[in-house]
């Protein structure tokens, strides 16, 4: 556990994982362009580990497909995430993990905005402000302790 010894949310509600995306015939046709969609972004972040529990953000419903907005033509992606409890101190860390994961996996043309789902966290505006501030995000990623925890969260599987 990254911070402290006590779990903040000792008994989180668990949700069923969605099945893997089935591949359509169009996806095998090289001549058809597949635009980025909600599900594709969701697949990228659903397996991020929760910093507190050995569970994924999807299982805790921290991230949900419906809370992702994507505008291909405007190169804009908006992700809302829902902390499991309103006073969750991990909210910024979860937001950072989502941002870093998307930063590493998405083409640089996209502007990515990660925010707390409105009304789900006590310090919502503060967390949103921190996550939107490029300077602060860059500074946070310079912090070796912090980047280690983020890497642990977004590491989907160990190298062989």
């Amino acid at each position: 556990m990254p911070f402290g010894d006590e779990l903040e949310n000792q008994n989180p509600t668990l949700y069923v994982k969605t099945a893997d995306r089935s591949v359509t015939e169009e996806e095998y046709d090289d001549s058809i362009v597949d635009p980025f969609d909600q599900r594709e972004i969701f697949d990228l972040i659903r397996n991020i580990n929760d910093p507190e529990h050995p569970l994924t953000l999807e299982e805790l419903h921290v991230v949900q497909q419906d809370l992702i907005t994507i505008q291909n033509e405007k190169n804009y992606i908006h992700v809302s995430f829902t902390p499991t409890i309103p006073h969750c101190s991990m909210a910024t860390l979860i937001g950072l993990s989502i941002r870093v994961k998307l930063l590493r996996c998405l083409p640089s043309r996209f502007k990515v905005k990660v925010e707390v789902t409105p009304g789900t966290h006590n310090s919502e505006s503060q967390v949103n402000k921190q996550l939107a501030d490029k300077e602060r995000v860059a500074a946070a990623l310079e912090n070796s302790h912090l980047i280690k925890i983020i890497n642990q969260c977004i590491e989907s599987r160990k190298r062989g």
Binding site: Y28, L44, K101, R104, C105, P107, I147, E155, R159
Partner: peptide, 29 residues
């Protein structure tokens, strides 16, 4: 970084997975 913007989703998915691994290559864990 070019492949993650491929026109095919299957290629992108594989490239994203692979790129994430290369980022974590020497990262502190």
């Amino acid at each position: 970084g070019i492949c993650v913007d491929d026109r095919k989703r299957l290629v992108r998915r594989k490239a994203m997975e692979c790129r994430a691994l290369w980022f974590l290559l020497d990262a502190p864990l």
